[in-house]
């Protein structure tokens, strides 16, 4: 590559700064919004950075509305859902962990056989998975609501886990299958000669080799499940079964809730997946690429 001229370098730096500004704008907004009081926000509508900082917004959420701090002293109304923050966190975590586990387990079973064996019906299964990825959630949620309602499974964690696992399995299979293609079959064949069954050969030999793909797929599935709104929104309307995104959605349009409080709960909700992405960036990048195009 030829060395870049000074003007080209300046242009590239400027372009990068614009992109960085665009990426960080909402993150700056949520952060700055969450560390000030409504009063500070209203006092000067031209000021970008607040004059004084406060952690009261977080405190009121994390203490379930008990410790009001001085911002909320005068406030009598707090949405009940904000007081349910810990329950919502726990629900989100239980659902996301279960969905990730089930999806990886069943997804790797399917992806492995799709990669190894060539039966007509498996081609059909693969195609069904590709098409399934495109089915919009709203189409499934109307009938699922009716079915779950008649089964008495509305407002339950297992209902949401079941629905999300089914919804995410096809995507997981598409991410995992190309990876199993790259694992040589000689190792399993040797294990089979040594007396392993097909299943133990898969569990003992193939799965450990597939750890990077499982990590990539697992973190992507976890993030999607943590972010999922429509499925729990429709299935779990009762406060004790709400997930974090549902709690956040319930604040929309509530004119009595301060922006600052909303930003604080948004920041708390996005922190886990931001940390995951920062730590596991490499795996996510590989997984996203594998799931879109067979590698």
């Amino acid at each position: 590559m030829r060395a870049k001229s000074i003007s080209a370098r300046m242009l590239l730096h400027a372009a990068n700064l614009m992109v960085i500004f665009f990426i960080l704008l909402p993150l700056a907004a949520v952060f700055i919004g969450s560390i000030q009081s409504e009063k500070a926000l209203q006092a000067d509508t031209r000021r970008v950075l607040p004059l004084e900082f406060t952690l009261d917004n977080f405190m009121v959420i994390l203490s379930k509305g008990q410790q009001k701090g001085h911002i909320f002293e005068q406030i009598t109304y707090l949405p009940d859902n904000i007081k349910n923050f810990y329950a919502a966190c726990a629900n989100s975590a239980i659902i996301a962990v279960s969905v990730t586990f089930l999806t990886l387990l069943f997804g790797s079973f399917s992806a492995y056989t799709i990669s190894r064996q060539r039966y007509k019906w498996m081609l059909f299964l693969l195609q069904a998975n590709i098409v399934a990825r495109f089915v919009p959630a709203i189409v499934l949620m109307i009938p699922l609501y009716v079915v779950m309602r008649s089964l008495g499974q509305l407002n339950s964690l297992q209902g949401v886990i079941f629905a999300e696992t089914g919804f995410l399995l096809p995507y997981a299979i598409l991410i995992l299958a190309p990876y199993f293609d790259t694992i040589p079959t000689e190792l399993e064949e040797a294990a089979r000669i040594d007396g392993c069954t097909r299943f133990t050969a898969f569990v003992r030999i193939v799965l450990p080799l597939a750890t990077p793909a499982l990590a990539a797929c697992g973190v992507i599935v976890f993030i999607i499940s943590w972010h999922e709104l429509l499925i729990p929104l429709i299935l779990n309307a009762r406060p004790d079964f709400m997930t974090l995104p549902v709690v956040i959605a319930s604040l929309v349009g509530d004119v009595h809730v301060f922006f600052n409080l909303m930003m604080a709960i948004c920041l708390l909700a996005l922190a886990p997946t931001v940390i995951l992405v920062a730590l596991l960036q490499k795996y996510i990048v590989e997984g996203l690429a594998a799931g879109a195009v067979k590698g």
Binding site: V30, V252, F259, M262, Q281, I284
Partner: peptide, 24 residues
């Protein structure tokens, strides 16, 4: 720097993203 930050928006829950932009 950009390459390091590029994946950040993927980590933000869509509903939180919506609410953040409501504030913006």
């Amino acid at each position: 720097v950009t390459r390091f930050l590029i994946l950040l928006p993927y980590a933000v829950p869509p509903i939180a993203n919506g609410l953040i932009w409501t504030f913006i």
